[in-house]
Amino acid sequence: MENEQRSTRTLGDPIVITDGVKKWFGDFQALKGVTATVREREVVVIIGPSGSGKSTYIRCINRLEAHQEGTIIVDGTELTNDIKNIEKIRSEVGMVFQQFNLFPHLTVLDNITLAPQWVRKQPKAETEEYAMELLERVGIPEQADKYPGQLSGGQQQRVAIARSLAMKPRIMLFDEPTSALDPEMIKEVLDVMKELAHGGMTMMVVTHEMGFAREVADRVMFFDYGTIVEEGTPEHFFTNPQHDRTKLFLSQIL
């Protein structure tokens, strides 16, 4: 059943290419040369202990953090200091945060339509129609006129996903999307993410949800001390890990 779901997706051309990416915070080196390629429609799950650089890595992909060495090419555009390129890539790459980061002074609908109106310059009616469609997809169309503060954590995170999708991104980044949620709300968010994956979205997901990784991921990357220690299919990764560090990590969380 699980394999069947995965096999419905055929992977396309490389869309995110990172080569020897290094990043320092002061004296601390967070990334020590990360080389990896993500292909279209691929779902990559990134796991690892805290402080291993996995969040920093995906934040480099839309330049929330600037890398200092190596190259990052997203959708054919290299990330440099060029602001035009950065803004273009950010509008193609959606991101979902651990703390949701919804705009508390705007209604759910306005949260979703803001970027399409200001960045894509789309007519308001069109953006609202699409926003309602997205809210249907994440299962909370009735919350459109409420403010984020009136919603539960799970609902807020689903709005945050809808907000990113409203820009019709080609890649979605998830930075521990369920870590701030109660157990019963985790499922509703993961369900939305699974549906996205089946729809063929390219996804890079930092998470501790091993069930999600097993079921949905095409590839699992294990980060430690700023490098990819091991990567492979979930079957390989969970049943036959090669490195001692991976084995230790899995033994502690499974």
């Binding site: 950010r90 945060f97 970027a115 200001w118």
Partner: peptide
């Protein structure tokens, strides 16, 4: 919160846009 700026940037909003709107 810093997250407000990050979320705005991640959506591709320009600095002048998110300062004024967010």
């Amino acid at each position: 919160p810093k997250g407000q700026t990050e979320a705005s940037m991640a959506l591709g909003l320009k600095r002048s846009q998110y300062l004024r709107q967010i």
